[in-house]
Nucleic acid binder design. Structure first.
Length: 888
DNA sequence: GGTATACATCTTTTT
DNA sequence: GATGTATACC
């Protein structure tokens, strides 16, 4: 019997605080939940989704929740489902829970026909992107020396996140006469050209293209607004402009958008996150309800007080009071170790102590660090102590060469136009097709306007190819074609009846594949206004017909329907059979000869082979969990795994991860290693001209790490650390002195080695750098790599200078309004009101500048700014992203 | 054209 | 300390 609405509501509100209840019961219209660390945010969101269904009568299929990782999506989906099942099994279908990137990938595939976009795009990882950028740099006649691909890519990525396409980017670069940006504008154009030709998209495209799809196609936008009538977006403080546009486009009309987040936990500004998305939420949605969750249920009073003390040093910040009813708990242990080995060993010793003497399970403990390289020494120590551990490095596995090679075969099978994948594996395993041959083939392909794979089939016609190379190409093409024949439907002649449903791939059906947790009801696609896709490919009315793959046939061979005659080997209707991915993988590995059956196998080959085996195992698991999934689904899922996605909760192992990856998680025991000046805050930040802004993000990073801890927190640093082979003198992070002293229990592991009579750790307060502050900063950087006592001095002065420059930046502004207020001013429209001439401002690309003149003119207010080293520049004000800078 | 070796160059954080 | 690149040799 279905419970009454009030029964269900009652159940869902049980045990909630008043603010949480408000968030859960808010019905229609925009809602902003400002949720402090550990304030029960996830609980509130899952209850809210369930409440919308149970009490609000919203169909689960009409709810879209966006989370930060696939793991979080899975978690939220599971918990919501649990709630709904508990109330009434009748409700038990999940809402769509997805990351922005997965959502984008899925929508782009769904609407590929309308967009003329690739049906199975190759989603590039960062390494792939860098290769393409490098090609693009060379293509426009520049050198990678002057235009380092990482820097260029970062610039392009920034443009994409602001929805700036090559033309717009180039135009704005021209306008400001910035040589680097003007050239990047050209590279950006070439880069896009290369991606388009290879039917590839990068991570940023998944957002940019989705934002444009929604912005520029009214019919699609309305269709999706109707599909997703309630929107919930988590970690809103870390959304960038593209994500902001996607959210707004979806929420347009119904306005049912619930954003949750915490400005103090914004740690992704470096990849385009725009804090004003959350800070100005009420400006974008003037009727928004705002709920604040400030009671912390996670941490002890001590941990919370320490974290609050730290974060209170951020001046560009809305004041917020986190409090807790939890017990005071133990003090935070702060280790100072001689070197990273001692540090790691001591962390592990403490963890073992918790485990052995206090019955804390291994999976209740985690170690965080700022940079991945720290994990190595921790792993060694854990291994030595026989402590089980897991490490959040999901992407690393898929970045391995042999894994990428095998996956490239799958990509090429799914999309024969994927020249990047084709080029990657053409000679893997070796077939006698070297660089020169590949170049000739590519030139031939370009001349004939065919894909690289097609060029391989016609290798005999390519001039200058050695017999060996030509043979290799033909062998390769034959292999791919054989695999396609085996796993794809054979070409269907025009006039033949549409293929039957059973062997046809049905990629459009969302699946529970660990990437998207979709509603059980199948989404409506291809409704009114759709052009009919060519008859040979299938019937759009057939629920099993896949419009995505149907277009693949069109893309591959636009004239197929009319001139279906020549070239028998390539199937012209590449409808993928729904074969288990693991089986396709095995066929690829077997056919290509990845497993070398030679008698003598060295260590490295063995490792490679076991990685390939692991790939098959993971794929088999994917097949088991997603029986309806297609090859395209698999490739999408694999491309979008995040580092934490592969972590298991009941692992029985200590978890290692970066501070960035730790967001949203919690552990009873947390250790944060290498809390050192230069690492946290990172030297790239302390030395950057972006000044206090970046330092504050580093501080938030430590804040995020500390607030993951429930019962016990350990912080540590080393006095010497191997960096790039050399031993470097190090000192504790300046952030450590911002933690209230009585929260800390300093432990000096070097104490034993201290010569009798010399000042001890606690006495001379080396870990508290304040003592050094008053001295003059050393004018010359300390030498590194020296030994003995000299190194100790080197470490101290190194710290002193780093700290001095940091301290001077953080000094309070001499006059004027408090910085916090200026910062909270809206950037987009209201900004001009808080500008005044003489104000120091920051522009994301121009850097620091001083306002010279302001010419108010409504929407087109112009501001003249004197930028450092660039001279006077005119900016038009709503769009110009100017930030006031506090201090000097 | 393929492969092995030395060497040089970075190292933030990630979907 | 590991990855890519340049060079030499097969």
């Amino acid at each position: 019997m279905r419970p009454t609405t009030s029964d269900a509501a009652e159940t869902l509100l049980k045990g909630l605080t008043e603010p949480q209840r408000e968030a859960v019961t808010h019905q229609a219209g925009p809602l902003l939940v400002l949720a402090g660390a550990g304030s029960g945010k996830t609980r509130t969101i899952t209850r809210r989704i369930a409440y919308l269904v149970a009490a609000g009568g919203v169909a689960p299929g009409n709810i879209l929740a966006v989370t930060f990782t696939n793991k979080a999506a899975g978690e939220m989906s599971r918990r919501t489902m649990q709630l709904l099942t508990a109330i009434c099994p009748r409700y038990a279908s999940a809402a769509t829970v997805s990351t922005f990137h997965s959502l984008g990938a899925r929508l782009l595939r769904e609407f590929a026909p309308q967009l003329g976009a690739p049906a199975v795009p190759n989603i590039l990882d960062t390494a792939d992107q860098l290769k393409v950028v490098k090609q693009a740099v060379e293509k426009v006649g520049l050198s990678a020396e002057h235009f380092p691909p990482p820097r260029v890519l970062h610039t392009i990525s920034g443009a994409k996140n602001r929805l700036q396409q090559p033309e717009a980017f180039a135009a704005s670069a021209e306008g400001r006469r910035d040589y680097f940006h003007v050239q990047v504008g050209r590279i950006y154009g070439a880069y896009e050209e290369l991606l388009r030709a290879a039917k590839a998209v990068d991570f940023d495209d998944l957002l940019l293209k989705t934002a444009l799809l929604l912005r520029d196609h009214a019919a699609i936008r309305e269709q999706l607004q109707d599909r997703y009538r309630h929107l919930l977006i988590d970690e809103y403080q870390d959304t960038n402009h593209a994500q902001f546009v996607i959210a707004h486009m979806l929420a347009l009309g119904h306005g049912n958008i619930c954003a949750t987040g915490d400005p103090d936990q914004s740690i992704y500004a470096w990849r385009g996150a725009n804090l004003s998305n959350i800070l100005d939420f009420e400006k974008y949605f003037p009727n928004a309800k705002v709920v604040r969750l400030e009671q912390n249920y996670r941490s002890t009073k001590t941990i919370l007080r320490a974290a609050s003390g730290l974060i209170s040093h951020n001046r560009m910040r809305k004041r917020k009071a986190l409090w807790t009813d939890n017990p005071a708990g133990a003090r935070i242990t702060l280790f100072r170790a001689a070197d990273e080995h001692q540090e790691a060993a001591e962390i592990v010793r403490r963890l073992r102590d918790f485990h052995d003497r206090h019955a804390v399970a291994w999976d209740q403990m985690a170690v965080f660090y700022r940079v991945n390289s720290i994990s190595r020494v921790l792993e060694d120590a854990l291994m030595k102590a026989a402590v089980p551990y897991q490490i959040a490095r999901g992407t690393e596995f898929y970045a391995r060469k042999e894994v990428k090679d095998v996956l490239a075969y799958l990509k090429l099978l799914a999309n024969p136009d994927d020249d990047l994948s084709c080029e990657r594996i053409l000679n893997v395993p070796a077939r006698g097709v070297g660089e020169t041959s590949t170049g000739r083939l590519a030139a031939f392909a370009a001349g004939q306007r065919i894909s690289l794979l097609a060029a391989c089939r016609r290798a005999a016609e390519v001039e200058g190819l050695t017999p060996k190379a030509s043979h290799g190409c033909l062998k390769f093409a034959a292999l791919i074609d054989a695999l396609r024949r085996q796993f794809l439907e054979p070409a269907v002649r025009s006039g033949d009846p549409p293929p039957g449903p059973d062997p046809i791939d049905t990629a459009a059906e969302p699946t529970q594949d660990g990437t998207d947790f979709a509603a059980t009801g199948s989404p409506s696609f291809g409704t009114g206004g759709n052009r009919t896709v060519s008859a040979q490919a299938g019937d759009p009315a057939d629920p099993l017909f896949d419009p995505v793959l149907a277009t693949a046939s069109q893309e591959a061979d636009p004239d197929a329907a009319s001139t279906e005659v020549d070239m028998p080997p390539p199937p012209s209707a590449p409808l993928l059979r729904r074969a288990p991915v693991a089986r396709i993988l095995e066929a690829v590995i077997d056919g290509a000869g990845f497993i070398d059956k030679a008698a003598h196998i060295d260590e490295e080959t063995l490792q490679r082979q076991s990685n390939i085996q692991e790939l098959i195992n993971v794929a088999a698991e994917f097949d088991r969990q997603n029986p309806a999934a297609t090859l395209a689904d698999y490739l999408q899922q694999v491309a979008l795994v995040s580092d934490v996605d592969r972590l298991r909760d009941q692992s029985g192992a200590v978890t290692l991860m970066t501070l960035h990856a730790a967001k949203g998680l919690e552990f009873p025991v947390v250790a944060i290693a290498a809390v050192e000046e230069g690492l946290l805050p990172h030297s790239r930040v302390t030395n950057s001209d972006n000044g206090p802004r970046d330092i504050e993000e580093e501080r938030r990073l430590l804040f995020v790490g500390m607030t993951r801890a429930m019962q016990h927190l350990l912080l540590s640093y080393s006095c010497y650390r191997m960096v790039m082979g050399r031993s470097e003198g190090r000192v504790g992070s300046s952030f450590l002195e911002e933690i209230p002293k009585d929260c800390l229990e300093p432990v000096d592991l070097m104490e034993l080695e201290r010569p009798a009579g010399s000042p001890g750790y606690r006495d001379n307060a080396v870990y508290l750098p304040r003592a050094h502050r008053r001295r003059e900063p050393s004018p010359t950087p300390p030498r590194r790599g020296s030994t003995g006592a000299g190194q100790e001095r080197g470490a101290a002065s190194r710290f002193r200078s780093a700290n001095a420059s940091w301290a001077s930046r953080a000094a309070p502004p001499p006059t004027g309004v408090p910085a916090a207020e200026a910062y909270i001013e809206p950037r987009a429209t209201g900004m001009r009101h808080s500008l005044r001439s003489g104000l120091l401002v920051r522009h994301p690309t121009f850097g620091l500048g001083r306002v010279a003149e302001i010419h108010p003119a409504g929407d087109k207010t112009r501001v003249m700014v004197d930028f450092q080293g660039r001279g006077r520049t005119t900016l038009v004000l709503p769009p110009a992203p100017l930030e006031p800078v506090d201090g000097e």
